[in-house]
Write a protein that binds this DNA or RNA. Sequence first.
DNA 1: TTAGTATATGAACAGATATTCATATATGGA
DNA 2: TCCATATATGAATATCTGTTCATATACTAA
Lengths: 117, 117
Amino acid sequence: MKEQCLCKLISPEEIDKIQKDLPDAETISDMAEFFKVFGDSSRLTLIYYLSRAELCVADLAALAGMSPSAVSHQLKTLRLMRLVKNRKEGTVVYYSLDDSHIDSLFKDALEHILEEK
Amino acid sequence: MKEQCLCKLISPEEIDKIQKDLPDAETISDMAEFFKVFGDSSRLTLIYYLSRAELCVADLAALAGMSPSAVSHQLKTLRLMRLVKNRKEGTVVYYSLDDSHIDSLFKDALEHILEEK
DNA sequence: TTAGTATATGAACAGATATTCATATATGGA
DNA sequence: TCCATATATGAATATCTGTTCATATACTAA
């Protein structure tokens, strides 16, 4: 434990316990990287489409109104984060979702937004 | 619907339905802004501590190893996103969580990370 | 009032990031 | 083989973002 609770609302023992439960720096960083992927409209749109259908890069680009190059770059990000998988058929690469948490995350985000007054 | 599905894996009717279900641009943007808040290690750490206790700015700074100014800036972000609320007592301002989705979001992120091979 | 403390805020800067553009790779058809 | 198409990728750039620093505000106590 680094410091006393200056404001003394809670005891040093409680502070100590809370600090011990803090995930380690690497876990926190991994979680942040995970959320960061969802923190961009373009990627969110791609993720939405892939949550509904398996699609090739060109179709994703057309649907999302992005260039194929931009889509490919973002799909690489999603791949590295293990959120999507792909399948090659000739020159076409089909992408689909590879994560079971998307629905839950989208639901939480939508609920929060709808709570806006 | 802007374009045909070039790869013709799914029908134009399906494409049409998927496009109609896409949340509007403002909703997508709001969702991205929401996730973006969690996409930073410092903010995630602050959110974690506030999920465990009501804390003042100085204590948050000490616990998270940040300057009070940086904490204050980040708390403003969290306030604007309606994720935290505060309470003033003299010169001290106590912050606490004001969102019911944090636990669920953290759980999803942690699960995903632990699925890493 | 004056001094001291806690917090907030604006400007500036450094680092990160999404897109574009040019190019490379891979596959299939002529 | 040569050409066309689909996708991937590296570099460059413009924008965004988190922190620091200086300063302002708000409250308390003397």
